[in-house]
Amino acid sequence: MDVDLQNIKKWVILYPIYINSKKTLAEGRRINASKACENPTCTEVYDCCTHLKIPCVIETEKAYPRDFMQRGRVRVMLKKADGSFSNPAITSRKQLMLQVAELVPRHPGRTKKQEAATSAAAGSSKSGKGGKKKR
């Protein structure tokens, strides 16, 4: 991929909050909650953009303005310098957010985390009742 780093400031910004189903519209979600995914990370968004063959760069030092604890954002080159789209199937920010939100749950790092979480939850919920008896 030929990435023009001089014009990186003109690229579209994609914060993970934009596609986070746990956030409200007021908190910064930009797409329908039913189409959004749970707590996406900056690297997952970046990996999904590279999978879609769209030039992108992670900016880890940057934070979301409304919630400065949310670190990281992804700069995406939707249009090339000549005005043509990097990926002809994706012609707007909204389409990009919907595509990325669809891909994030299938991210290889995420599927491993979910398997570990489900096996840990199954192991810890063996005892039915516990605690002290009432007198």
Rank of each mutant, 00 (worst) to 15 (best):
K9D: 14
V12S: 11
Y18I: 00
R73H: 06
N20E: 00
P65H: 09
R93V: 09
A36I: 10
G123I: 07
A81S: 11
D47H: 14
L78P: 00
K53T: 09
C37A: 04
M69E: 11
R93I: 10
L98R: 09
N87T: 08
R30H: 11
R29Y: 03
T111V: 15
I8H: 09
K134L: 13
E61P: 00
K79P: 02
S21Q: 03
D67N: 15
V100W: 05
R73Q: 14
S125I: 05
W11A: 05
K133M: 10
A121Y: 12
M77F: 01
D82Q: 04
V57N: 08
G128D: 06
V74R: 03
P40D: 14
K10Y: 08
T24S: 15
Q95V: 08
E27I: 02
T41W: 02
G130S: 15
A36G: 10
V74D: 00
K53L: 13
M69Y: 12
A36W: 10
A81N: 03
V74G: 03
L14A: 14
K134I: 03
S124R: 14
K35E: 15
A121F: 06
S21G: 00
C48H: 03
K129F: 11
T50F: 09
C49I: 13
K9H: 12
K94V: 09
K129T: 10
F85C: 03
R73E: 11
C49D: 06
K134G: 06
R135P: 12
G109I: 00
Y18S: 07
R29L: 05
S119W: 04
N87K: 08
V74T: 09
V76Q: 02
A33I: 07
I19K: 01
